[in-house]
Amino acid sequence: MATRSIGQLSPFNVVALTLGLAFLYLPIAILVIYSFNASRLVNVWGGWSTRWYAELMNDQAMLAAAGMSFRVAAVSATAATILGTLAALALSRGERFRGRTLFSGMLYAPLVMPEVITGLSLLLLFVAVQTERGFWTVTIAHTTLTMCFVAVVVQSRLGSIDRSLEEAAMDLGCPPAKAFLYVTLPIILPAVIAGWLLAFTLSLDDLVIASFTTGPGSSTLPIRIYSEVRLGVKPQINAICTLIVAAIAVVIVSASLIAKMSSIRGESAAPL
């Protein structure tokens, strides 16, 4: 009887992996293929065509929403990266300080907090201080959500690096801020960039929080897509979704290239 050695890949493992990955990828692949369908009937294949992409270029409302989404994502991701990196630094380098448990609690809670709660509570704040809702309120809301993701990604990187380097710099008389800029930051840069990219895609993707915090007349791309999707499947929606998937694919590929170039040591413990 040929026994498999323990710890080897069994046929069962291979089947589980293959089915699992097929389940994750097939629906998106089908969506992409059907966006090139020439037929107006979504489920009848009428040959390859790019006509829906051409029609998309004439959809002013969709283009405006896309512009708004990209601006919100760029600004909020940048703010979130700065705040999130500072938060990660405080959590992994600071000794105990007053309110530290509350601080880490506030940073981890939004990761799982149902979006309807986060969205509603921010909206009520904005209404209470009588802010005009639109670009900035959505940007603030997205910064609040995504800085927590940045903090987790950067923090797990900070936990895995060699602290003696920055300590050596400071023992040699380097001020802490300078030691951070010249020693710590270059080492954690891949995680910081990955954090920015994650924040960017999360912002681009968010429907619920944006719906609560935006004002009349300023729709983001997901809000626009959502209102179309509710009315049913349309080839144009397949096309815009394919474009978003392509944009995100570019982001991921560049992220992994950056990670590869800077050759991350140890396991990347980022939970995301």
Partner: peptide
Amino acid sequence: FWTSFLIRIYA
């Protein structure tokens, strides 16, 4: 996970 949530539901 990075791919849009809404798009995955739409798919």
